[in-house]
């Protein structure tokens, strides 16, 4: 029997596998496929204060082992979420993490403050890294100062633990991670998608309605892994690894380089039960290697 639980300090997870924001709807979409309580947790789709329309279609383009999306955070807004979805999620015995968005620092704080009034939320993931909502893919996670300010501002209005989600579209991701840590973030999750595009050579037009989007899937895994490795060595707070995780082996790699937990994203689209498969695969691997607590492998990379 393997103990799969991991302790993030502010949050104990029954296993290290979280479903990633934007790939798992509001959670309930996956209820037909398995018992959501089998998950370490899940991160619901990013919420702004108000409902949001999202970007002009087409919003998805497949590339070799990858997917470029430019959804633009379409969603129902925080009030409808708390009224219509959260009561059902709050009943679940698993970590429900809410992804928080904002047009500016004030909106991040407003959304976080509103969510803090409700029961059933284990933590907030601060989405300062969506590449699809501002021109040129800009986001607060591209600047240490903006990251620090946003985290600080949200910390002031919520008692909920904060996981700051970083963008890979930066020159030095470590400095951004440190800014989030210094501002009081309880954890870091990385990475969001890589800015990307594709062109239709017949029409000479971009394949995405929004021109550029964010690349996810197995194509980005090695780069995401390298960034998690660098960040995990530089910060003291727990790191959650994200980026093209499709198998238990992928998840184990991220944990070995220092991730305390991982998020599964695009894989949920291909196999609705991808998270479950990964949990089972990790358990089996640990059994085969005589590991009693999965947390033993966190940061166990030998260099």
């Amino acid at each position: 029997m393997v103990d799969l639980s991991v302790d993030l300090g502010f949050l104990k997870l029954k296993n290290p596998v979280l479903a990633a924001s934007g790939t798992f709807g509001y959670g309930l979409e996956f209820k037909p496929f398995y018992d959501l309580e089998l998950l370490g947790g899940f991160v619901v789709k990013g919420l702004y204060f108000n409902p949001r329309e999202g970007n002009l279609p087409p919003r998805l383009i497949e590339t070799p082992s990858g997917l470029i999306n430019s959804i633009g955070l379409q969603g129902i807004g925080v009030e409808a979420f708390c009224r219509e979805i959260l009561p059902e999620l709050a009943e679940l015995d698993t970590a429900v993490i809410v992804n928080v968005c904002g047009e500016d620092e004030d909106e991040y704080a407003r959304v976080a403050e509103y969510l803090s009034r409700f029961k059933g939320i284990a933590a907030l993931e601060l989405n300062i890294s969506c590449p699809n909502v501002r021109e040129g893919g800009r986001c607060p996670a591209q600047s240490s100062d903006a990251t620090f300010r946003t985290v600080k501002k949200v910390k002031e209005v919520t008692p909920l633990p904060l996981i700051t989600k970083l963008s890979p579209n930066v020159t030095d991701i470590v400095s951004i991670a440190i800014a989030a840590e210094e501002a009081g973030s309880e954890a870091i999750s990385l990475v969001n998608t890589f800015l990307a595009m594709a062109v239709d050579i017949e029409t000479r037009k971009p394949k995405l309605g929004n021109v550029i989007g964010g690349l996810s899937g197995p194509a980005i895994k090695p780069i995401a892994l390298r960034m998690v490795f660098q960040v995990a060595r530089a910060v003291k707070i727990p790191v959650i690894g994200i980026g093209g995780i499709f198998t238990a082996e992928d998840a184990l790699e991220f944990m070995m380089v220092g991730a305390s937990a991982i998020e599964v994203g695009t894989a949920n689209f291909v196999d609705p039960d991808a998270c479950l498969r990964i949990i089972q695969g990790m358990e089996k691997w640990a059994e085969n290697h005589g590991i009693k607590n999965i947390s033993e492998i966190i940061g166990s990379l030998k260099i």
Partner: peptide, 16 residues
């Protein structure tokens, strides 16, 4: 008809 990410309503990729 549309390109779809998941077919389940989770990705919001196939909107009209």
């Amino acid at each position: 008809e549309s390109i779809m990410g998941c077919g389940l309503g989770a990705c919001w990729g196939c909107v009209k």
